[in-house]
Structures are given as C-alpha cells and as structure tokens.
C-alpha cells in the first residue's frame, strides 16, 4: 500500500506540475487551457489518493467538465489572436526569476515540513457522501446556503447584463 501510494503521489504531482508549466509556458491560449485542465486532473487524482472519491469526481465534473469548457468558450468568443504581446518568447532572465519565485515557497515550506514535520494519520479518514451531506445541511447549513445565494446573485447579474445589451440594440 505504501509504495503504491508513493508512486501514485509522484505521478499526480508530476501531472500537476507538468500541467502548470504547460499553462504558463505555452504561447497559445488554448494550449495553456489544456495545461490548466491537466493540473485539475492531477488534483482530482490527489483527492482520490486522499480517499475522497466524491471530491475527485466533483472536481472532474465541475472543473474539467464545466468550468474549463466555459473558459474555452470565452477564449473562442474573444477571438484571441495568437500574436499578442504575451505570446512572444520571454527572456531567460524572466524564466530564472519565475523559477526562483516558485522555488522560495517550495523550499521554505518543504524545509519546515522536513525539520518540524507533524505526524499525520497513517491512513486518510474516509468520509462518505452521507456524512458530507448531513454535514453540509446540518452544522454548515449557513455557509452552504450563503454560497448558493452568491451563485444566484452572479447568475442574475449575468442575465441582467445580457438583457441590457439586447435593449440597446433595438
């Protein structure tokens, strides 16, 4: 179990990092989006490794299936040109600075965890869907409902924006 978990962690971490690099380094917006999707897939794998398949599937369903498609749509609608300012190859100095910027938190956090590591549970706790559901509608009902109100407001705002445009066109 231990070796399998380590191998899986390595694979998912690699997927996440590779996707992130693809997202940052590629000149084409759609390729960058594919990088983002790869990262999201890797995160779903991490959830699976943490014994929460429900979160993993929701990650796939919502982020990979819906949100990234919406981003794709936005990219297509804005008719992004491939020859924008950001698509030119960046100078080496920028790459080095970016790498250093990414390395600092990784080194600090990694060092801290290495020297003063906390011993976690041997196996992740398994939380079933039933427990999640009762939790969301029991102890956490107020934040849960608040989120739905926020989403509702966002949706109404989106509809209202489109409404206004239509009126002006007439």
């Amino acid at each position: 179990m231990q070796t399998m978990a380590h191998v899986a962690f390595g694979v998912y971490a690699f997927i996440i990092l590779a996707g992130a690099i693809l997202a940052v380094a590629s000149a084409s917006l759609v390729r960058a989006l594919v990088g983002l999707i790869t990262t999201l897939l890797g995160v779903a794998g991490m959830y699976l490794l943490l014994a929460s398949p429900f979160l993993a599937f929701m990650q796939l369903l919502i982020y990979v299936g819906a949100v990234s498609v919406m981003i794709f749509f936005a990219v297509m609608l804005t008719h992004a040109q491939t020859g924008g300012d950001e698509s030119a190859p960046a100078p080496v100095r920028k790459f080095l600075l970016a790498a250093a910027g990414a390395a600092v938190p990784a080194l600090v956090l990694g060092g801290l965890l290495y020297h003063r590591g906390v011993s976690g549970a041997a196996k992740p706790a398994v939380v079933g869907v039933e427990k999640l559901g009762t939790g969301l509608l029991g102890a956490y009902v107020l934040p849960f409902e608040l989120i739905s109100v926020i989403l509702m407001v966002a949706m109404c705002a989106a509809v209202l924006l489109v409404w206004e445009k239509r009126g002006k066109r007439k």
């Binding site: 999707i37 599937f57 796939l60 990979v64």
Partner: peptide, 17 residues
C-alpha cells in the same frame, strides 16, 4: 464502486472538451 454513477458522469464530461 460506491460512487459508480458519479464516476460515469464525471469521466463522460471529458468528451465535451
């Protein structure tokens, strides 16, 4: 799989992409 139907729904959403 205890979440079988969710697995199917989640992975079939990749097709749109």
């Amino acid at each position: 799989v205890s979440l079988g139907i969710l697995l199917i729904l989640a992975f079939s959403s990749l097709n749109v992409l």
